[in-house]
Design a protein around this nucleic acid. Structure first.
Length: 189
DNA sequence: GGTCTGATTATCT
DNA sequence: GATAATCAGACCG
């Protein structure tokens, strides 16, 4: 079990280290294969313009969840980090490992690559909602486990944003089939 | 394979 | 009134 103190560092150190960790909610979930970093200096971050009612969890202590509704439909979960101020790692994709039947039922598909491959999808599969906003990550229903083996992590550009889109703050497991979008071997110039 | 669009709501201008 | 850290389904080739 990762201690809460694991998150009391810069999001830019924590985020790559999260790839390969296992995230469970009520015993259901899988290995993290994709995360993105956001901090308060980042125009794409919800914390960029200062604290509001929605983003207050990002300004709280590290090691807690920040859950928000996206496009009026989906939930997305972030893991709040220690620095810079009001920073967090958005969990974008899991490799499903535990509770496959529960996740399939919640998602309405048996296709393992469609269960948790995307921030909205994984919240639906794990049953994460606004009720989880602000909860500590080292206490039930959350469970975060360190990787059993070193993970090959690739750094690239973030997805689905219009501002600061050139920053390479997305971290993925190399070769994973469970990413929200595949890695391009090479970028066109 | 790819691209486009509607769903639906909190938040901010 | 516009925008958004998204997804699923429709359509085109």
């Amino acid at each position: 079990m990762l201690p809460r103190a694991f998150f009391a560092r810069s999001v830019h150190e924590v985020a790559p280290g999260l790839v390969g960790c296992t995230l469970l909610v009520d015993g259901v979930g899988g290995r993290i294969v994709e995360v993105e970093a956001y901090d308060q200096t980042d125009p794409a971050s919800h914390s960029y313009s200062g604290p509001t009612a929605r983003n207050r969890s990002m300004f709280g202590p590290p090691g807690h969840a920040y859950v928000y509704r996206s496009y009026g439909i989906h939930w997305c979960v972030n893991l709040v980090c220690g620095g810079p101020c009001a920073s967090a790692a958005l969990v974008r994709a899991l490799e499903p490992t535990t509770g496959l039947e529960v996740m399939s039922a919640r998602r309405g598909t048996d296709d393992a690559t469609l269960l948790c491959s995307g921030p909205g999808r994984l919240c639906q599969a794990l049953g994460i909602t606004g009720e989880h906003d602000g909860l500590p990550l080292d206490e039930p229903p959350f469970e975060l486990l360190a990787p059993d083996a070193p993970t090959d992590v690739v750094r690239t550009r973030r997805i689905g944003i219009t501002r600061a889109a050139d920053l390479e703050w997305r971290y993925c497991e190399r070769g994973s089939r469970f990413l929200s979008r595949p890695l391009r071997a090479r970028r066109a110039l």
